[in-house]
């Protein structure tokens, strides 16, 4: 079994029995898609909520929720996943620091990322089975393609399976 590593603003798709993982999600969100019949799992490490925030037109589509999630869906379909069976799980979107005053919009990037991921999934009619989002701590996540379970690890917290 191989573990495919997804970095910041990167995506990937794996098939049974491999798993796919991203390390140290803070305000970023790990969006996972899974087709339980084909046992195909995908993950993208989203950094920002919307391509409206992008400066310039030549940007990395895996960085923004509104382009990254539809692209991941297409990639899943190329791997044989059936759009009607695909379900999502989310993790991340934390607020790592607490500052006062004018830095507010910067700090809320985590919850804005989560909101944006939910919105784009709903527009694509992909149900969200579960999520572990918010809080003020970093998360490492791994999606197992044999079961569709998402494992979440954080410093000083119990390992979680959602």
């Amino acid at each position: 079994m191989a573990v495919v590593r997804v970095g910041i603003a990167e995506s990937g798709v794996v098939m049974n029995p491999d798993s796919i993982s991203t390390l140290g999600l803070g305000s970023c969100v790990g969006v996972t898609l899974y087709d339980e019949k084909r046992r195909v799992g995908g993950m993208v490490h989203v950094m920002l909520p919307s391509t409206e925030l992008a400066r310039g037109t030549d940007f990395n589509r895996s960085k923004f929720a509104d382009s990254a999630v539809p692209d991941l869906l297409k990639q899943m379909i190329r791997y044989g996943a059936d759009e009607r069976r695909i379900k999502a799980k989310l993790a991340g979107g934390a607020q790592m620091f607490s500052l006062g005053g004018n830095a507010d919009s910067l700090l809320k990037i985590g919850s804005r990322n989560v909101e944006a991921c939910r919105k784009v999934l709903s527009a694509l009619r992909i149900p969200i089975l579960s999520e572990d989002t918010g809080g003020s701590w970093g998360r490492t996540v791994e999606l197992f393609s044999d079961s569709g379970m998402l494992e979440i690890r954080a410093i000083g917290r119990e390992k979680k399976l959602i």
Binding site: L23, M47, R55, G56, S136, W137, I155
Partner: peptide
């Protein structure tokens, strides 16, 4: 400067957050 804030956590989580503004225009 903003009010300084402390976090003790994974380097990836702290750095990626700190890079989010730069992420709007670059990787």
């Amino acid at each position: 400067p903003s009010v300084p804030s402390l976090a003790m956590d994974m380097a990836g989580a702290i750095l990626a957050f700190s890079l989010s503004e730069i992420g709007r225009s670059s990787d």
